[in-house]
Design a protein around this nucleic acid. Structure first.
Length: 427
DNA sequence: TCTGGGGTCCTAGGACCC
DNA sequence: TCTGGGGTCCTAGGACCC
């Protein structure tokens, strides 16, 4: 593979804006009474901790900690616990990005809580970073930190420095070749280097980011990968990772969930799979995509020692690319029939749509004639009703009415910003 | 009872072709 | 029937990220 890189223009600057403790901060925006109170947010099924406020971090609660194990400690410490509320987090994320766009037209939404902003050509970048920070807080209630540097990798590091050192007031500009700063950061603490890689780098005498920036990129590529090679260039201010302002077309859409409790019965699993298939169809249509293939998968718990682990998947190709929920459910059930084994306690199932292409550029199958006009109208009506009146107002009977497989969300906060009935009357 | 969900990129290896 | 290099394409699996 050819290494793509370009010397940073002399005036090119990138800012990484990152919301502090994003999920926990979202919960706090509408609950000012929780200011200063430790907060944790749980994964789906209320299984483990996936986000913590600063206070909860300081109390020693760990990422990934099992909820049921740490529950007594959480109670004792007076920690406020939330199930995850992705409707709220997704909407708050959109609001933050809308604020960032007031400062630069060129930005890349990197994740639900991080965006890269093109700061090239502006003067007084520290002051600009402070304005982004102040405005985001004022207009959304969310606290952010800003890291500014010549490349994405360095901007990530700058952001980390801003976050860890309160004296910078949430904004830090990292100059290329600032060896004092790079020396202070361990390999495992930067973007793209996992804990696993750390001991191997240490064998080569690479203990911190300064060492890494001075390592031989060709040698690292040979011993590890092109990813590490690029990192060395990035650390030296040579940009290898461009700003992706236009989100690339998705290559696949996945909808999967663990069940609220283990499921054995075929009809219940069918309902779950039909529900995931429905959700996947909605996602596709909202992005004007159609899928060429569908994969369904089913597995038992890898942690349940009372039975042997079983995991299987099956893929089918649609005769013609589609985003019709009826066809997606049928295909998903076809796959499910191939992989379901009676007598097992299943923990999770999912649906994956692949071979995605734009819905306006499909290749019709000569022999298989799908009535796409009728399907399109039906799906449009379905989506409109569900958008106006709430999810699942109208749905396929295949999804069933039982609730036993549905995930647990016992402590979910209201959808303050996306559901009229949940909107607080007094702020 | 109980261990997230959704995604990207890279690599190796096999199939196939000329 | 055997031998071979060089190339592309596809897939599965791993690593990593948030």
């Amino acid at each position: 593979m050819l290494l793509q890189m370009s010397l940073a223009r002399s005036d090119s600057w990138i800012a990484l804006v990152d919301v502090n403790n994003f999920y926990a901060s979202c919960e706090r925006v509408f609950r000012p009474d929780l200011e200063g109170v430790p907060i944790v947010v749980l994964s789906n099924n209320d299984a483990c901790i996936i986000a913590r406020s600063q206070e909860a971090k300081d109390l020693g609660f760990k990422m990934g900690g099992l909820f049921h194990k740490v529950l007594p400690d959480l109670k004792r410490a007076g920690v406020k616990v939330f199930s995850s509320n992705y409707a709220l987090y997704g909407d708050m994320s959109d609001r933050a990005v809308a604020v960032y766009r007031q400062f630069t037209p060129n930005l890349e939404i990197y994740s639900i809580d991080e965006s890269f902003l093109d700061f090239s050509g502006f003067s007084d970048l520290d002051e600009l970073g402070q304005r982004v920070r102040y405005t985001t807080r004022r207009d959304t209630g969310l606290p952010v930190c800003v890291g500014i540097a010549r490349t994405k990798t360095l901007a990530k590091i700058a952001n980390r420095i801003a976050k860890k050192n309160p004296e910078h007031n949430g904004v830090f500009k990292l100059e290329t070749g600032d060896s004092e700063q790079l020396k202070k950061i361990e390999n495992a603490d930067i973007w793209g280097i996992s804990r696993r890689l750390t001991p191997k780098l240490q064998e080569l005498g690479i203990y911190n980011v300064l060492d890494l920036s001075r390592a031989d990129p060709k040698m690292l590529r040979q011993k590890f990968s092109v990813v590490l090679e690029r990192m060395v260039y990035e650390l030296n201010g040579i940009s290898c990772l461009e700003l992706e302002e236009v989100a690339p077309v998705k290559k696949g859409i996945m909808v999967s969930r663990g069940f609220g409790q283990y499921q054995e019965k075929y009809p219940r699993i069918q309902e779950a799979v039909a529900t995931y298939a429905t959700r996947a169809g909605e996602k596709m249509r909202s992005q004007n995509l159609v899928a060429n293939t569908l994969t369904a998968f089913l597995r038992t718990s890898p942690h349940n020692e009372s039975q042997t682990y079983y995991s299987n998947s099956h893929t089918v190709a649609f005769p013609e690319a589609t985003n019709d929920t009826g066809l997606i459910i049928r295909a998903a059930w076809w796959c499910l029939k191939k992989i379901y084994r009676p007598g097992l306690k299943y923990q999770k199932a999912g649906v994956f749509l692949g071979g995605l292409v734009n819905a306006d550029a499909t290749q019709p199958d000569f022999f298989f004639k799908l009535d796409t006009g009728k399907s399109k109208t039906l799906m449009a009506v379905l989506d409109k009703l569900n958008k106006d009146h709430g999810r699942d107002t109208v749905r396929f009977a295949a999804s069933g009415v039982s609730t036993e497989w549905k995930m647990r969300q016992r402590m979910v906060s209201p959808r303050y910003t996306t559901l009229w009935k949940d909107m607080p009357l007094v702020y």
